[in-house]
Design a protein around this nucleic acid. Sequence first.
DNA 1: TAAATAGTGTCTGTGAGACACTATTGG
DNA 2: CCAATAGTGTCTCACAGACACTATTTA
Lengths: 261, 261
Amino acid sequence: MITEKEFLEQYTDSIYEKPSVTTDILVLGVDESFSRLKALLIKRDEHPYLGFYALPGGFIKKGESAYQAAGRKLLEETGVKDIYLDQIYTFTKPGRDPRTWVMSIAYLALVGDVSKITTSGEWFDLSIDEERIRLYSDKSDTEIVYPIKEKSFKNGRISYKNLVASDKGKGVKLAFDHVEIIIESILKLRTFFENSDLAFNMVGETFTLPDLQALYELVLGKKLYKTNFRALVAPRIEATGEKIKSATSNKLSAEYRYIGS
Amino acid sequence: MITEKEFLEQYTDSIYEKPSVTTDILVLGVDESFSRLKALLIKRDEHPYLGFYALPGGFIKKGESAYQAAGRKLLEETGVKDIYLDQIYTFTKPGRDPRTWVMSIAYLALVGDVSKITTSGEWFDLSIDEERIRLYSDKSDTEIVYPIKEKSFKNGRISYKNLVASDKGKGVKLAFDHVEIIIESILKLRTFFENSDLAFNMVGETFTLPDLQALYELVLGKKLYKTNFRALVAPRIEATGEKIKSATSNKLSAEYRYIGS
DNA sequence: TAAATAGTGTCTGTGAGACACTATTGG
DNA sequence: CCAATAGTGTCTCACAGACACTATTTA
């Protein structure tokens, strides 16, 4: 019997074929007036999916974690770091990349106002409802639309409902299975918005309550009642004592700061 | 300019080194009397971590998805299929496998009463509280214990708390980073129990409310009030009209069936 | 000074948490 | 027939949803 040390010294790597593993990152932000969700897409200049838009991302290198790879790519593409970045789901369906066997670990990154961020990509307006998901870039006047259907599937004894984009319809499309990644990420973002303080990653150091509420309404896709919203966030914020101009209107509002939960 | 078809024909695979990718599965069940959570572990008979206990799992083969690979392994190890199986998290930290570069996509599988399942592994009692996680197999009289600490970490502007097992202390340990996988999975299981109908994957086709409540209390690690618990599950179940013996006591209780939400 | 929007008071319904009680069953 | 436990009634509190109102600010 050999020892573990001896084993590791003589170990030769698996003869089985291995997949390539990438990270794809949905970088989400808002415009200056909290009226549009913004997602970063990059036009592919290589095969496959040449000319299609894709999420920023890239191969994970040996010696780094998926989180590090996502952070590195994010920094390369946007120049930002130390922002919210979290793993969403790992996509492994065979054939999702026509070249070869590629898995993708999807990440969600949250930035605030995208107007200050320089990138080689394009910021697309992102909207999603029960009927469709729509991405639009006014920079290149590109519109990407997918109809959405609710699909029910079983896991064990329980049925779940899920939103699935149908690939039908013409027009510009997203590369690979990146629609799926975007949909999954948005759904997770919504539950996080309802159950955690995630929203504060998308406003500045200080903010006004009208702006914060506009952000919630934008992400959750529904109107909220002012009173209830304020009661909800009240324990997590403190007034600075100043009054500043909201981005959503041109009136003065009280300025607040996030103090954690 | 070549077409995509030509590109794919001439495409040669990446020269970059690639990781191996495995799935590791936390197979969770209960004993006959709903008094112990059970987790399946397998004693390793190879280096590395020879003699340590590990989660069942294995390499993903080309042509199958991670989900399929997890389902295949589950069937091989337990003979069960068509049960609840869901992706939890992908572990990618460099060095997590001493042999070489290996990522692991963790899955959670839910079975019911484990006494009917034959396996080459061992069923360990699993308990977890704020202080420690403990696994115990009476088959081999093996006890595996890790102290647990609450660790706070920042993601963007927000601080999160997380349970982390410390590697200190002697005694039998788990292979690789499998403690982490187990802890993450249990935490996810708890939030799923509180927010979905997941529990019905761990009881039979019909069940009694005392049994179902015992299961909830076991997973959530706290006592529940009968009245509130019954009010909660009432809309999702229907009485069969029969009275059967509970597993948790020797009295008759009304028999129910899951009807979905 | 008027329209718009910041900000507050309060009512309702629902669900979790809690406790006290009655009904039924096995030994 | 009695101890144990199945099963019910009801109170409280926190919070989401909803609406009506007052205060302040810019045009």
